[in-house]
Amino acid sequence: MAENETVWEVFIQSKNGLAHKHVGNVHAADKVMALENARELYTRRNEGSCIWVVKASEIVSSETEDSEAFFDPSNDKMYRHPTFYNMPEGSKHI
């Protein structure tokens, strides 16, 4: 009897200028309902200026076992960070 409802992941932009942030999910039969359900659940305290909903099944995620291959290679590229560089003493605004 327990046929699964469609799960939608919800992203809220709390105000203009900020990025949308994942807040959780809702169940809904269609996208209009998903958007309204997200509004009811996640913006009860005036938290939103924009909502995205996306079917959970459409999200592609990297796997934990790939995390070394994915993320460790960037570990030793310190030259991408500004603190890597030696600035002459007395130099400002750089």
Partner: peptide, 11 residues
């Protein structure tokens, strides 16, 4: 919603 991340549905 958090429990569902463990691979079990709300239903």
């Amino acid at each position: 919603s958090a429990t569902e991340t463990l691979g079990i549905s709300r239903e």
